[in-house]
Design a protein around this nucleic acid. Structure first.
Lengths: 335, 335
DNA sequence: CTGTTAGCGCTTTCAA
DNA sequence: TTGAAAGCGCTAACAG
């Protein structure tokens, strides 16, 4: 039978209210009585029950995080950012993996809301009508991280996927390439798939390079699918001279396929990835990529959420973090 | 003002107790009344308050997980295993990063216990007296994952680090190597550091190869420190012909350092890593390594915890999962 | 500065 | 099969 605040009150000779005050460090308590109460807390080994506190105060100091897959190094880094800031503000996070499965997402959100989290951080593929509905049924704030909803209803923290992809392709164009292959994500995915694809097309368009669908292959962000895509590109009559993949893993897969066929990166074909995950610095040649501030996306989103929770004034509901082209060794230095 | 069980009771014309029964699917409720109550729950958009339930039932269906660093791909995979099984048993997890910092660990454990988690999963470097103390103050079960306590007080799920390292080194010895370098973890770390080091020494010992401290370098498990260690080994008069690193990242760093100096892996120097993290399949040459069932460690630990929570009979309190030598391309096939 | 007293929303005997 | 009522452990007015 664990010791309760009532026991502490009885043993110390003060009331529950006063004990509560010293626990919460709130308002004025005479130093002498604080000391006494602290002593009996120590003596009894009292540990406040956060569930009871949550019920009484309507605050749980925990926030819900739904994420596609924590074993993806991209999201793991985002979560690290979330957790660090959460910790700083004295929140804990309940983490749950959705695998981008709609039903699972909806269930998880519901469960988290039932658990009375003080706020919700959502990462996922798409934000559908159903997401919107359930988010709107929430009495606590919801912030989208590394995604956004099509109607801009909810605050979000993300990068400009369209521009990032366009910049990457433009760098190739400026280096003189005309035959630029694109290893894409699913086009049904509005942000990481479709928006980046549009960026690719736009860059070509502005350079008057006709779009050639043979230079586009859909991948699943993983290494193998990068190899496969590259295998296909290399089977073409007119091979591309540059390849842009929307994930580092796929880019590395592409590089290895190129190398396995006896060609050289970057001399025969240049390759650029996306995300700047740790692997890009652990391969040869070092991978040129588009750096996405994963940690910051998480950190900013969490900070953002605390502001909403505390109803602090918020200037901009939709923050776009900056991406950056990282030139390493899988592209020729254009200097 | 959110709708409560009381509202549902009033609207449906039944008592709170009966509403509670249909929510929990427990005991007998007449189908007709169940139907009516379900309807009014739907109509009112009632969402049960898990905090109140937790207070009343003394169960929160959430478990606490403390982990060194979620952005490490090793732990990310372990957590995926934990979460999947947790999910299966209808638990949520509160995840917190400790960075192996003792004070932080103790604080986190305390917070989780205050939050009335139904169980605790601990991963960390070392399990000290202080850990033992706080774990013993817990009224809920504690399971150690990917670690164990020196006195075998708490149930744990891990691999045999000593044997795994020994096996890796023995494979080199059987392939004819005598000059085997070792990129170690901190020796103050009892499991991943010290135990593996002992395994290395034991293998040499059994083969009557004298231990040479110049062939041992302490790393921090990361890529750069693998390169550094290798740079040092290559500066030796008598260079090693094989290198065993206790993490894949360090092994890959070593390979790249070797390659950068114009030598070939595996022809000039063979390299073997540890963990079988995804990167080992994404480098050239493909990395030979010791496979650790990370996902399973998490999954088994979580399953283990549910058994403790439900007070199911448990045969063995200390489960050792099997490691496995994976032969890829950074070692010569010994067949 | 401290105490009294209602709840918070739900589960759980115990009766009916 | 259903209901009444007593808490679960704590916070938050409100008094004093």
């Amino acid at each position: 039978m664990p010791v309760t605040i009532y026991d502490v009150a009885r043993e110390s000779g003060f009331s529950m209210a006063t004990v509560s005050r010293v626990i919460n460090g709130s308002s004025k308590v005479k130093p002498a009585t604080r000391k006494k109460i602290l002593e009996t807390i120590e003596r009894l080994g009292y540990r406040p029950n956060a569930v009871a506190r949550g019920l009484a105060s309507k605050k749980t100091t925990t926030i819900g995080v739904v994420i596609p897959d924590i074993s993806s190094s991209f999201f793991a880094e985002v979560v690290r950012g979330i957790e660090d800031i959460a910790n700083m503000y004295n929140y804990n996070i309940i983490l749950s993996n959705s695998d981008k499965n709609l039903e699972k997402e909806l269930n998880l959100i519901n469960t988290l809301l039932e658990k009375q989290v003080d706020g919700l951080l959502f990462m996922g593929g798409e934000v559908t009508e159903q997401h919107v509905d359930i988010f709107q049924s929430s009495t606590v704030p919801v912030v989208l991280a590394a995604t956004k909803d099509p109607k801009n209803i909810f605050p979000s923290v993300d990068i400009d996927h369209f521009q990032a992809a366009k910049d990457a392709v433009m760098a190739f164009i400026e280096a003189g390439h005309r035959k630029i292959a694109f290893i894409s994500g699913q086009l049904t995915d509005p942000l990481t798939g479709y928006a980046r694809f549009q960026g690719y097309k736009k860059a070509l368009d502005e350079a008057n390079i006709p779009f050639d669908e043979r230079y586009v292959k859909i991948g699943n962000y993983h290494y193998e699918s990068g190899m496969e895509a590259m295998r296909y590109f290399l089977s073409l009559d007119v091979k591309p001279t540059a390849v842009f993949a929307v994930s580092d893993e796929m880019a590395v897969g592409a590089i290895h396929e190129i190398q396995d066929q006896g060609l050289n990166v970057p001399n025969d074909i240049e390759v650029r990835g996306f995300d700047n995950t740790p692997i890009s610095s652990m391969v040869r040649p070092l991978l040129s990529t588009v750096s996405i501030p994963q940690y910051d996306i998480g950190a900013v989103a969490m900070r953002f959420l605390t502001k909403h929770i505390n109803e602090e004034p918020i200037e901009n509901q939709f923050v776009i973090l900056q991406h950056q082209l990282i030139e390493r060794k899988s592209t020729k230095q254009s200097s």
